[in-house]
Design a protein around this nucleic acid. Sequence first.
DNA 1: GGCGTGATGTAATAACCGTTCACATGGAGT
DNA 2: ACTCCATGTGAACGGTTATTACATCACGCC
Lengths: 218, 218
Amino acid sequence: MEWDRRRRKSDDSGDGTRRGYHHGNLREALIGAALDLIASKGLSGVTFAEAARAAGVSAAAPYRHFPDRESLLAEVARRGFEHFAERLEAAWQDGRPEPVAAFNAVGRAYLAFARAEPAYYTAMFEAGLSLDDHADLRAAGDRAFAVLRGAAERLVGDLPREGRPPALMMALHVWSMSHGIAALFARADGGRRRLPMSAEDLLEAEVLIYLRGLGIAA
Amino acid sequence: MEWDRRRRKSDDSGDGTRRGYHHGNLREALIGAALDLIASKGLSGVTFAEAARAAGVSAAAPYRHFPDRESLLAEVARRGFEHFAERLEAAWQDGRPEPVAAFNAVGRAYLAFARAEPAYYTAMFEAGLSLDDHADLRAAGDRAFAVLRGAAERLVGDLPREGRPPALMMALHVWSMSHGIAALFARADGGRRRLPMSAEDLLEAEVLIYLRGLGIAA
DNA sequence: GGCGTGATGTAATAACCGTTCACATGGAGT
DNA sequence: ACTCCATGTGAACGGTTATTACATCACGCC
């Protein structure tokens, strides 16, 4: 790995603790610490000072790698969107073996990510990061959305030309459903309120009804 | 008003500035300051110290009215849900003159609230407040949701018994759509990304397609 | 192999915030 | 008039962000 070459020879124990004057991989260590802190103490628990402590460096060291605390969170969120896009792509599988089923798989993958990676999801959608201040964050988010949009285009393509809805609109609709359910009901803490069904089933039913409304049958 | 009686006679200028040793209406002043701070500096700009400064009292004074900073935000969010429920009820109008049209009005009212009251909306949905720690907050949220649920029950009631979907599920679906669109596209800053149509139109189309999928025509 | 330099980490510091505590004030009721 | 207690004050503690001058060392260059 790239960073292995940069570590000091006396610091190759692999346990992540610092050995010499230089950490050798502080940037990665801080990102990892931020993820751990989100998971254990929530967004407000993510502290430059605490992340630095976890990495075994002084409180000022993180400023060599991130201009400020928010940029650290933005980088976590950016990576979250990268992983997110990968998961969605893996679920979509270019619409194979069957577009509607693959589309439902994308929806399930959306919620699965929110559940399996609550720390990333929190940084991505709940950290209040401005997309204008972090252009690369917006780009990563766009890449994830592109999967939804591509899938929508495929589904819409099977409809007769007249009355065919815009694929972009359909993608936005499905995104809003997925995000709405994830934000309201599929949070790490089990969601903001109790449900009579799983968030996954709720979303699947919602998408199914929506697709039926578009004339796309399962 | 109630609090007027509690103000000192020398403090009835009405400009909100403190005159004597006691403020007379600090609790309300803090809530107002919190709303202003959310609007001007965002959630992280809401500071007990800053709110106290705005009210012209010392930094320790707020603790006489709220156990901690989070409780102030929770109270703001609670009031937000109260107003929210009122707006939704006003839009629904018990389903008059026509249920589907009234239902769409509820959706528009949802987004209108997110736009017109970004400070409340932020406190309600983006402050990361635990509903378990603030029972009254949950109750206020439930009251707002009850409007959606009642509307859903009305719409579902017009369907034939066989295959009639659960009203609760339908209410959750519509809530997820509304919240998803509000969170993703109708934020105060104009939303996280550009849209080819207004958030209101996007939601109206989404609900329309969804209702068609349920067999409820416009 | 020796050297300089830029990247990386440290210590010290200033400003700010949440929170607590002992104490001060004065409005309300007796 | 007097007391009570809700409300506000000032000082203090520990923690956070961020900046600055200084320390260390890995690497490339000769």
